[in-house]
Design a protein around this nucleic acid. Structure first.
Length: 479
RNA sequence: AGCGGGGUAGAGGAGUGGUACCUCGGGAGGCUCAUAACCUCCAGACGCCGGUUCAAUUCCGGCCCCCGCAACCA
């Protein structure tokens, strides 16, 4: 079966966040597992590059806007390489093809009667150049620009008739697996039952200049939704579909989206309503992951507790970063990571665990076996329970399964003492049998790690096939 | 106000209607193939109060704390 998987598109206004790295890695592991089992997978990610905030930042830095977003897009694309992400496409919302798709999406919803213009009034802060809602206001003033009067501004914007889709969305959310975890589906249902209001989908061109023009109205520019969300299908070539990817992966394939837990109303409500309006098939499933905190607090620049994915890769390398973010970050709950704990996990599980086991086994094999152990198909087959756990996003449990085998290997070594038996001619053959078993055992472990740590997996299998003890797979951290 | 999540050994985390698991840390042994690694044993925990049940940490209700969200800010 064909499968489509996409991450959300990060807004390029800031450096890549560790939370997004988790999303990429989860998507990548799923993709690799599926590809291993012979499925064809289209794995999309990319960047969301429009918006006044981005334009302002570029101007503040005195940079050309195009050059500015190119820079950030390149930065995010580099992250994929850095993390070893096997994505099929990288969509940018500034791509001409995407811009056309967003406009076509708009036209279709408009033709359906789901887009209308209405006056919108709000308190506008000249300092922020944006409308303020109640919680941004203190003593009648914007909290950031307390010296400026807020202005009551009335402007016309386009709205999307979300309210019309209330029942249809409830029906959609009634399908058991459209949202994982299940309790977020309840959350979404509650939200929708509370009543859906139409939402504004454009801004006056005087307020928002860096965005996709609204078709047939040059006074208005699309505000985020039709722009960003449409990228999930524009990346497949929708609407013209020159390569047939939209047909294969969206219409005929199974559609999975990954997103952060705050995205429920956008991905599972607004976007789904937009798809309904445009008569396009809905997303089959959205998986919502949790957030990552550090030291019990949200990561923030002011607290100085931000851990960037690049720092992780710099310290531990790509493979270990993938391991850490997959095994020690809860799939759906919020998690807390600190450098101290990551060091601990690295040393305990990879240095002392996996790395050491491979060393001790391969040293014995290299010394006492005259030729490489012949691996059977069983030895390198990934077991069903592991695949099942990955498919239901139980990444930690899947990894626990693999790491149990590392402990088992160490126990086996202690129980049968091949290093001792090999010295006695009486038990020498016995010892060789045990060593062979151990070699096959680490090959099995390596096979299971292929999707998570592809290079490590290969290194172990290469060692096994050449019957040589490899260099230390995981160097000890400096004291 | 409301909605959602959580409170598990000294620390950080999994998990489950019936011997509660992992990592670090503490104590006592063992081993020497290995990256001063590995193995064994010991001490130590399910926020509080009710209910359902033969049996609850796990299900239900209440309470107390913590944390998010609260609509166009991951």
């Amino acid at each position: 079966m064909a499968r489509y998987i996409t991450t959300t598109l990060p807004y390029v206004n800031a450096d890549p966040h560790i939370g997004f790295a988790v999303e990429l890695i989860q998507a990548d592991i799923l993709t690799r597992i599926w590809r291993q089992s012979g499925e064809t997978v289209f794995f999309n990610t990319g960047t969301d590059e429009h918006g006044q905030k981005i334009l302002q930042t570029s101007e503040k830095e005195g940079r050309d806007i195009h050059e500015y977003v190119d820079h950030f897009a390149a930065e995010f694309e580099r992250l994929n390489g850095t993390l070893g992400i096997s994505n099929s496409a990288f969509v940018r919302t500034t791509n001409p093809a995407h811009i056309e798709a967003a406009q076509e999406m708009w036209r279709r919803c408009h033709a359906k009667g789901d887009i209308y213009k209405k006056a919108y009034s709000g308190l506008y802060c000249v300092g922020c150049e944006s409308f303020k809602t109640e919680k941004d206001i203190e003593d009648g003033r914007c909290m950031i620009h307390t010296h400026l009067e807020l202005q009551e501004i009335v402007e016309e914007n386009y709205f999307f008739r979300l309210s019309k889709y209330q029942d249809a969305i409830l029906e959609y959310l009634d399908r058991p697996n459209v949202i994982v975890p299940e309790w977020r589906r309840e959350e979404a249902l509650n939200f929708v039952r509370g009543g859906l209001e139409d939402f504004s989908i454009s801004r006056d061109v005087s307020k928002l200049t860096w965005g996709i023009p609204v078709p047939d109205d040059d006074t208005q520019v699309m505000y985020v939704w039709f722009d960003a969300l449409t990228s999930y299908i524009s990346t497949l070539g929708w609407p013209s579909d020159p390569a047939g990817n939209f047909e294969t992966y969206w219409n005929e394939g199974k559609i999975l989206q990954l997103a952060g837990k705050d995205q429920v109303r956008f991905q599972s409500v607004m976007w789904q309503a937009m798809l309904m309006s445009a008569d396009i098939k809905n997303t089959d499933q959205v998986f919502y992951h949790g957030f990552i905190n550090s030291g019990g607090q949200k990561m923030s620049k002011s607290l100085g507790n931000v851990i960037s994915p690049y720092e992780l890769v710099e310290k531990y390398g790509r493979e270990v970063t993938r391991y850490l973010l997959l095994r020690h970050v809860h799939p759906v709950e919020d998690s807390d990571v600190t450098w101290e704990r990551m060091d601990e996990w690295y040393t305990a599980n990879l240095v002392n665990g996996l790395g050491n086991l491979v060393s001790r086994v391969m040293k014995l094999a290299e010394t006492h076996l005259s030729e490489p152990v012949q691996l059977t198909p069983y030895d390198t087959r990934v077991e069903e329970p592991f695949i099942k756990l990955i498919n239901v996003y139980e990444f930690q449990q899947a990894m626990d399964l693999v790491f149990d085998h590392i402990t088992k290997g160490d126990e086996y070594m202690t129980t049968y003492e091949p290093y001792k038996k090999i010295k006695d001619p009486e038990t020498e053959d016995d010892a060789r049998t045990h060593i062979t078993q151990l070699v096959r055992h680490i090959a099995k472990i390596a096979a299971h790690l292929e999707s998570v740590m592809p290079e490590t997996s290969t290194a172990i299998l290469t060692a096994v096939r050449s019957n040589t003890k490899p260099e230390n797979l995981f160097p000890r951290l400096p004291a």
